[in-house]
Every structure is written in structure tokens, then in C-alpha cells.
């Protein structure tokens, strides 16, 4: 079964050799090996974390997909499952953990809260979606997603990885440097990437400011 995934489909291998030989491309074998050994970071935030643990436990058991090695250290993890509500107080730590993960790294936003704030979106201490800070690869709706839904999301991530190309891999490029500036806890959450907006806001009135940023289509 595994050779089916690695083997390049347009190459015919004689039937007697099929279980021993596979002809493949570098991309395929590279992606296949990465996708089949995704190590999630052992990192839970809220309710969804319990369902994540259940996904690791015997009923669903994601070790069948090579994901059982959950490491609490970001240095040894490939995928960060953001499982739960991201609060303003916690987001500096999450960004720091993400920065410490080695490339290539992936982020799964598990559940409504991590995707877009969820039922707690209006709360004063809630970040409306981890994608405000981290590049999210897969979003899984649900509150909380059932273990099977989480596993489906992880399979979607595997498919995404299988489509990647070695030549496009940014993390092997020479001057690749992706460090996300860590948010600061001020009177409210401060995003260092938005400091220029404060200057602008001080100069113009609120209405002008809103219209201007809308016109530019500035995405948060």
C-alpha cells in the first residue's frame, strides 16, 4: 500500500516486482516521508485539547498515521495544533513557541476559537483567530471538533504536504528568515507589526483612518 503512494503513477512496474520496486521522484518521497511522520507539539489550550488527547488515545489513535510522537518541546515538533481559545495573555507565548519550531512547520487551527475566536470572540481577552499572528494551514470548524473531525483535518494537512514541491520550499532558500514579532501586553494587546498604525491614528481622525485603511484593503 505504501508503494502506491510513493510510486509515480505513469510508470509501469512489472507485477512481479511491484512489492519490491518503486520508481519515484524526489518530491514524492520527500513529501511522503514528511507527511507520514508529522509530530504534533504537545500543547493544549482549552476544551479542544481534551479532544486532541482523545485523538491520541485508543479510540481514534492517530499513531496509525505516524503522529503519536507528541513532544512538549517546540524544537522537536512539526505541527502545532492550536487547540482552543487563544487569549491575549497567552498569544505572546504561542508566537514564541512557533518561532522556536524548526522548519518546515505547520499550524492547524483546531475548533472555532482558534480559527476565528469562536463563541468567545467578543470577549475582551480573546484573540479572534490565531491566523492574526501565525500562518495557519488547516482550519477545522466545530466546537469542539470530534476526534474524527480532527483526524480528518490532519489528513487534509497530509494531502497539502503531499502537494508541495522541493523547489518551492522556502525554508531551504538562502536568506529565509521567518520570525514573527512577539506581541506585547500593553493596555491591550500590542502587535509590533502595527505600530505604524498608531502614528497614523494620532494624526488623522478616526473616521478618516477607517476609510483610508478600508480603501487600501488592508487585511489584519
Amino acid at each position: 500500500m505504501q508503494s502506491e503512494k510513493i510510486n509515480k503513477p505513469d510508470i509501469n512496474i512489472p507485477p512481479e516486482l511491484q512489492s519490491q520496486v518503486a520508481v519515484t521522484t524526489l518530491d514524492r518521497i520527500y513529501n511522503w516521508s514528511r507527511a507520514s511522520s508529522l509530530w504534533p507539539m504537545m500543547f493544549g489550550l482549552a476544551c479542544c485539547a481534551i479532544e486532541m488527547i482523545i485523538t491520541a488515545a485508543s479510540r481514534v489513535d492517530f499513531s496509525r498515521f505516524g503522529m503519536e510522537v507528541m513532544r512538549p518541546s517546540p524544537r522537536q515538533a512539526d505541527v502545532m495544533i492550536v487547540s482552543g481559545t487563544v487569549t491575549k495573555k497567552m498569544v505572546p507565548q504561542i508566537v514564541r513557541l512557533f518561532n522556536q519550531m524548526g522548519e518546515p512547520k505547520y499550524v492547524v487551527a483546531m475548533g472555532a476559537c482558534a480559527s476565528g475566536g469562536g463563541p468567545f470572540k467578543e470577549g475582551y481577552n480573546v484573540v479572534s483567530g490565531i491566523d492574526k499572528f501565525l500562518p495557519v494551514d488547516v482550519y477545522i470548524p466545530g466546537c469542539p471538533p470530534t476526534p474524527q473531525a480532527l483526524l480528518h483535518g490532519l489528513l487534509v494537512l497530509q494531502k497539502k504536504i503531499e502537494k508541495e514541491k522541493l523547489t518551492d520550499a522556502e525554508w531551504y532558500k538562502k536568506d529565509f528568515h521567518e520570525e514573527i514579532p512577539i506581541p506585547i501586553l500593553g493596555p491591550d494587546l500590542l502587535d509590533p507589526r502595527k505600530f505604524h498604525l498608531f502614528k497614523k491614528e494620532l494624526e488623522t481622525t478616526t473616521e478618516e483612518f477607517l476609510i483610508e485603511s478600508d480603501a487600501k484593503g488592508e487585511e489584519a
Partner: peptide, 13 residues
């Protein structure tokens, strides 16, 4: 239906 994970929330959610 719980199998609704996808890779872009702004387009689908």
C-alpha cells in the same frame, strides 16, 4: 457532517 476542515477560512467559513 463533521468532515469540513479546509485550508482557507475567509473563503469558506
Amino acid at each position: 457532517d463533521y468532515e469540513i476542515a479546509n485550508i482557507d477560512r475567509f473563503a469558506h467559513h
